[in-house]
Design a protein around this nucleic acid. Structure first.
Lengths: 196, 196
DNA sequence: ACCTGAACACCGTTCAAGT
DNA sequence: ACCTGAACACCGTTCAAGT
């Protein structure tokens, strides 16, 4: 079978989901595709580029739902809160969709910060909430960092459970969903203070 | 010269600061110490253990300043805000002290979340501010995630500048210090809402 | 255009054997 | 107790050469 960027990406995601980021090596990926390691380098310049493409795909999946267009500006004064809640939840869900997704996206995020769709969207919404541009940018970055860190912690704990081969859902984190909600609400309340 | 946990750690920090986390390999560390790679494994079970020890040391350096003891409880009702500001700033400074410090601590943080001194201290302060324990835990985790993510972004940008060999302080991030302050203040305002 | 073969320069870790 | 020597089982990347 012929290779393509798409088939390489698909195989990469398959390895990621089944075995985790540590086992996603170029050699393993090649052997899974029935190809020599060097063959991959015709489609991706290097491993970093491949990982960045995966990260972009994960992050892009978080903003499928269209955001309130600017034309609907005056439709509601508190809509920014609902929109920020939704997009943060979507981003979190996208990260948790793939094993080690948060770590992968966080690594890629470092390379070209701002390429991430969620960030740009959040900045706009926060500006609409009443913050000036530089504050909105700082606030959006903070929100992204919270979501990434939260998801990374959840997935790190998943990995510990796997390693220890814990039988049941025993020592789960107390309540990750609630931790996320609480953290998000605190942040939104803070935004409210600064906007009002 | 005889090896020791301490001398190994010192050499590891020297490599970290001079060449970065990617160049901190067991083999390089061994050669820097004039020793065979296998020799390191008498002092540290594996690389992960060594990195965790480094992360602990960085994080521990952030809480050198003693925190308001519980006995001084009633000394001021808004002290939690100042204390949280100080400890967050200390933590951030500790992370930025060593090259790739945030990435290192974040990775170790995943292994035993809660071992970090800063987290425990923050939880106590936030409880003192009026949040119930489970909320305080979620809030402190969120704050840690923000600081870690912020510092990681700053250092990732440092690395990009190094790689590109940019001549001057040109394309610095707009203003990392301000971004940190803004993000922190938004979070503290949110805590205030929830506490009051 | 797309991939193979084969090499280069590395890794982390183990473990008998030495001192 | 502490380290050497030497191996094992890997890595990412390059690049002439094939098709």
């Amino acid at each position: 079978m012929r290779l393509s960027r798409e088939s390489v990406l698909a195989a990469a995601f398959a390895i990621l989901d089944r075995y985790g980021l540590a086992d996603l090596t170029m050699r393993r990926l090649a052997s899974e595709l029935g190809v020599q390691p060097g063959g991959l380098y015709w489609h991706f310049a290097n491993k970093q580029t491949l990982l960045a493409a995966m990260a972009d795909r994960i992050a892009a999946g978080a903003v499928s739902g269209a955001v309130q267009p600017d034309s609907d500006y005056g439709s509601g004064e508190e809509d920014w809160r609902a929109e920020l809640t939704r997009i943060s939840g979507d981003f979190r869900r996208a990260l948790l969709q793939h094993r080690d997704g948060a770590e992968l996206v966080a690594a890629g995020y470092a390379l070209h910060p701002g390429s991430g769709e969620p960030l740009e969207t959040m900045i706009k919404i926060i500006q609409r909430a009443g913050l000036e541009p530089s504050d909105a940018q700082a606030a959006a970055a903070a929100l992204i960092h919270f979501v990434l860190g939260h998801a990374a912690e959840v997935q790190a704990h998943d990995q510990l459970r796997r390693a220890a081969a814990l039988p049941a859902e025993q020592d789960r984190l107390p309540d990750p969903d609630r931790d996320f909600t609480v953290g998000l609400e605190i942040f939104l309340d803070g935004l409210d203070s600064r906007a009002g």
